[in-house]
Simulated assay, not measured.
Amino acid sequence: MKITDVKTFLVHDRERPSRNYTFVKIYTDEGLTGLGEAGVTGRELAVQGMVESFAPILRGMDPSRIEHIWQTLWRGHFFRGGHVHSAAVAAIDIALWDLRGKALGVPVYDLLGGLTRDYARCYCHVQRAGGEGPRGGIDAMVEYAKKQVQEGWEFIRFGVGEGSNENRAGVYEQARAVRWTVEAFGALRDAVGPEIEIAVDFHQRTTPPYAIQLARELQPMRPFFVEDPLRAENPAEFAYLRQHISVPIATGEQLPSKWDWRDLIEQDLMDYCRVDLCICGGLTEARKVAGWCEAHYIEQVPHNPLGPVSTAACLHFDLSTPLFAVQELTWRPEILADIVKTDMRLEGGNLYSGGSPGLGVELDDEAALANPYQMAGLHILRRDDNSVSDW
């Protein structure tokens, strides 16, 4: 079998106008295809350009040589790495695993060592807009969270200040965000009880003093983890943070390669690994990061704000990974259902694979082309003085 072509499909989400998806499809001379997805939201055109630069290299290659192709795309250039590069490699790599599973007639999790669990438990995002006054969207968030729990979700997540009125207006002031978040967490804990796990995403917006303050105030209410309290590219600051807080830390969704994980893993600076398969080199690279984490008892919580192909890749990773905690899930079965067919099923807060060959996903090329990319622009947060805040 040989690769005959590689195509990128940039698909606009009609229901969420600010969202586009980057799908990569690999075609072969035997008629089988593989499907992947890239991350780095907002950089879709750059990823498409990178994939196009790889296409002439890939044509004629044996798609079963997944590791060899990964090494070729990553190391076969003088300049390596970067998020656009790694996201393009990730989409191609995921497509190759999908293709290999289809060629052998087995699900990808079988290729990764087989099932270590029957399903992946997931967490949903519960922050909601709505409401006036200083409470902002707290009441709306609490009501939505209660509904999700009634439907079977055991893990929920919200972001620091994300449901507040000022955040919706594009303003992020740390002190006010901290106060809002403490109040919001307390309201959620009171509403859903002690057995439901609540994660809080700091989204890299807090400086160390505010991260420490917020983590300490949340600690008595028992967060499952605090996510990205600081930007992950400076692990030394996580060592500083470790000295001052005792709540579990999750981080890493922005890291593009295994080399960027080294200090966080080897110095035990995190408790949960937020690897993003569609940014960090695909399944090939994520498996290496997970194996490294296993030696340090760090569980996997894959980052997944993307579409059905990313979700399928995460699911097969989760099902075959020994140390797995919970899966972020924003995808729902109705999202892009006319464009990407999938065998996944969601029951309450648990995600199941149908066991189809490959990842269990198929792209309708014509339907994808009928929903072309639309430039969404940047979502910028600013502080009161109009300076830029981390998004």
Rank of each mutant, 00 (worst) to 15 (best):
E162W: 11
V388L: 12
R157G: 09
C124Y: 01
V40F: 13
Q148V: 12
G360Y: 08
S310G: 15
M270F: 11
R80Y: 01
L351G: 04
R14Q: 07
V289W: 06
A367G: 06
I245W: 01
Y352N: 02
R16L: 14
P220Y: 10
D93Y: 08
G39M: 01
L73T: 03
M344S: 04
P256K: 06
A95P: 09
G76N: 12
S64L: 08
V106F: 09
I69N: 07
R14S: 11
I335Q: 10
V247W: 12
V160Y: 02
Y21E: 12
Y27G: 04
E266K: 14
E362T: 07
R14L: 08
S353F: 11
Q327E: 14
T28F: 06
A295E: 10
R121D: 00
E366K: 15
F78Q: 08
G131A: 11
A325R: 15
L58M: 10
S310F: 08
A91M: 04
Y27K: 09
V149F: 09
E366G: 11
L104W: 07
E195D: 14
R59H: 12
L10S: 10
N386C: 09
E15R: 14
A368L: 03
S164I: 03
D5I: 10
G193Q: 07
A368M: 06
T33C: 07
D201E: 13
A368K: 02
I279S: 13
R189Y: 03
R59N: 10
S246I: 11
T207I: 00
V289Q: 05
I245E: 01
D384F: 03
L241D: 05
I66H: 09
Q300I: 10
I212E: 03
A312V: 04
L306N: 12
D365C: 15
V108S: 02
G82N: 05
V309A: 06
R274E: 12
H85D: 02
A312H: 08
E266R: 13
L241R: 06
D263L: 12
S86C: 14
Y352V: 03
A286K: 02
I3H: 04
T181P: 03
D13E: 13
Q243C: 00
A313H: 04
E294H: 12
V108W: 10
Y240W: 06
